[in-house]
Design a protein around this nucleic acid. Structure first.
Lengths: 149, 149
DNA sequence: CTACTTTAGACAGAGCAACTGACTAGTGTC
DNA sequence: GACACTAGTCAGTTGCTCTGTCTAAAGTAG
């Protein structure tokens, strides 16, 4: 399996996906090691989108690009495991705000540390300037590529 | 939902995932429009990894980071839909090579065109130099982040 | 060349994650 | 007050992925 083409061998999609997957795996492993092993990647992708003041189910679904039903299913599981809680939305009696609960809050520093460790490794490999450019470029890309925003 | 922090609001994982997802969606839509609407994202992720001379199931599974069983299941479906075919591996009677079949080959230019269109949009938004840097940086990142390689 | 170990892949069974469609209840508008 | 819209749930289905088990071929050691 020798490389015939230098950079173009992999399309951009794969090039974006590979480090994403690597990062996710690392964060997952770190959380599992810290005792947070009772949730799944799908649940984590929803959890990540919860804002500091709580977020409605419908908003979570839009942000994660899944249906309300799926989001509800995943939040049910997160709630059952103690990572999140549902509180009434004072501004709308139909809605409820999904908030990070005590157990969920415990995951945040662990996840952040794992991300920081991976980013540090990447910065070592790439150089700190290309690493900063990568982040900045991806942030700009989000402006046009994020259907939610 | 105002931005409080300029770039750091989203972690790198999300920043990688958002454009990946956007690109995948666009390619999917283009393929569906061209009549290739009878396959799923999971199948496409396996299909993408098939090399020009065919690839063994076990290799596909490793590359896509799924189990052999899952890869076999997805290849079954791709084979049934006419996108790939299985041929004996001349070097190992146990193994078979998964190859792109006629119908599968038809998807390649359509997918490539969709990717090129998205990349052109992104280059317009980012500037062509940052776009080239993005590709180069991601390629270098693959060197350490791709567990398969 | 025979016995053991490893590898390629298939089969069976189960759980999770996503979807569509139909529904209830609260909100907003005319 | 009637009607349209929105937040979320319930029911049912499909698809993806896993673990565990199995067969057959290949490689290795005696």
């Amino acid at each position: 399996m020798t490389e015939q083409v230098p950079n173009e061998q992999f399309n951009l999609g794969l090039l974006l996906f590979i480090p994403y997957r690597a990062l996710e795996d690392r964060v997952f492993a770190a959380l599992a090691k810290a005792g947070y092993d009772d949730f799944t990647p799908a649940q984590a992708r929803v959890f990540q989108r919860i804002g500091p003041d709580g977020t409605r189910l419908t908003e979570l679904a839009q942000a994660a690009q899944i249906t309300k039903q799926t989001a509800g299913f995943l939040v049910d599981q997160l709630e059952h495991a103690g990572y999140v809680e549902r509180t009434p939305d004072p501004t709308d009696a139909r809605a409820r705000l999904v908030r990070v609960a005590t157990r969920g809050a415990g995951t945040v520093p662990v996840g952040a540390a794992a991300i920081a460790a991976v980013e540090a490794e990447w910065a070592t490999h790439l150089g700190s300037k290309p690493m900063a450019q990568l982040r900045q470029t991806l942030s700009r890309l989000r402006e046009i590529a994020d259907p939610y925003r």
